[in-house]
Design a protein around this nucleic acid. Structure first.
Length: 156
DNA sequence: GCCAACGTTGGC
DNA sequence: GCCAACGTTGGC
């Protein structure tokens, strides 16, 4: 089983939106490297950290689970939507999404500054200068470390 | 295929 | 609001 970190802006779609919906397609990703993660690298059952960016505070706020196969990102077919992709057809989608299911909301936000201070997290992509990928792999150890820092209560 | 210009991301 | 990083675009 692999582990991932999913970045999202809470003003657009945050952990509370995910908790309310329960299940959502992780979509609107417009970066080819991340597309490959979503479409090919993820597997059902993989666990994900949910990270709030452009937020106060910024940090990891909960977890989710990959709950199915990749699907064509529906937003690419919506004319007028900022996510519209004119090159895409139903037969040959350009962008892909993944269903993810809410798992937990941490007792507290594990803030970016704390992540930076933790030696066990030194290798995380999100902490590397210039990182802009909205989905990045994390190790099982990093996942467990952050989950413990967040004081996750089972059932969230 | 190169690369300058431009746009976006995202922490601060 | 600033600005570093970096992806994309488009002229050549």
């Amino acid at each position: 089983m692999a582990h991932w970190l999913l970045k999202t802006e809470p003003e657009v779609y945050g952990i509370d939106d995910l908790r309310r919906e329960g299940l959502t397609d992780w979509d609107r990703v417009r970066n080819h490297q991340v597309k490959i993660f979503l479409r090919d690298a993820m597997a059902r059952g993989d666990r994900c950290l949910i990270y709030h960016s452009n937020a106060e505070p910024t940090g990891v706020v909960g977890t989710a689970v990959v709950s199915g196969q990749a699907v064509p990102d529906a937003t690419q077919f919506r004319k007028g939507d900022e996510a519209f992709e004119p090159r895409a057809t139903r037969q040959a989608p350009v962008w892909w999404a993944r269903p993810v299911r809410f798992e937990s909301r941490f007792a507290r936000c594990v803030e970016l500054a704390e992540l930076r201070k933790e030696p066990r997290l030194r290798g995380m992509a999100i902490l590397k200068r210039g990182n802009r990928l909205s989905v990045t792999p994390v190790t099982a150890a990093e996942f467990a470390c952050i989950e413990a820092m967040g004081g996750r209560a089972r059932g969230g």
